[in-house]
Amino acid sequence: MNRLLEFIKRIYVVLLFILLECIAIWQYATSTPYTEAKILSRTTAVGGYFSRKITNINHFFSLAGENNMLTHRVAELEQTLERERELLADYTEESWQRKMADEDDLHYRYYPARVASMTISHLRNYIILDKGERDGIKKNMGVITPDKYLVGYIIEVSERYSVAMPVLNTEFTMGGSLQMTNYTCSLRWSGDSPYHVDILDVSTYAQPEVGMAVEAWSERMPKGVTVGYIESFEHNAAKTAYSARLKLAVDMSALDNVLIVENTHYGELESLMDNLDIQSSSNGTK
């Protein structure tokens, strides 16, 4: 209290000045309609300016929350969209009712997550995500951005965290397909640039073009996940296939919010492939 009094005592002249000026401004502003209109418009403009600045600052600090909310919303919408797609692709009255009633029948499920840490400067880079087993995350789930750009897939899971192998890892393997065509290819990262990957084994019948999008072709991912865009392409030495250099659609250095994608049929597909392997190896031994 004493400090406050001391402070007021120090600035009382300025306070008196402000008080007298305020009285004078009020008196002057209300003296004629012209001054009233002019001063009112100026004070409104100044008030509006400061109000806008304060709103902008508040908005800036709420961006993280909004971003998080939007990522959750994207996950929900992707899930709904996936469900609608499946219904449309396989529509019967019975299937419609069954799928509407049963959430578990969804082909793909989306889980929002945030990048806890990551590297992009090594040959074997990894991304640690803040969702783990207790959030329903399992190995081999895909990782994409909310814009549906390829990031990688989950290779290890702990209770609270999971590790994804991004496309920027020399051990990363996944198929790709040229957008709007059925021509497939293999994705490889040579380790030279964090903004580029290579695609190999593109059929010579395909007609790649600069700027053409390449999508992920994998059982871990839904359709329509973009890997990148063709920057240059050439025939291989034997002229049996094309290889091309892609500019990655996602900027890995600015990765924050991601979606983890679960293919609910992945276990079934995996066991099917395992059975095929067993059969082929037993045939080989015979």
Binding site: L16, F17, A24
Partner: peptide, 27 residues
């Protein structure tokens, strides 16, 4: 400040300034 206020107030009253003399003399 108080003398200025008194002078400006007199001018406002005598010349019909409606506060403009106070407003500009106090600064």
């Amino acid at each position: 400040l108080l003398v200025s206020y008194a002078v400006a107030l007199v001018l406002d009253m005598m010349l019909g300034g409606s506060g403009i003399y106070v407003l500009t003399l106090l600064p």
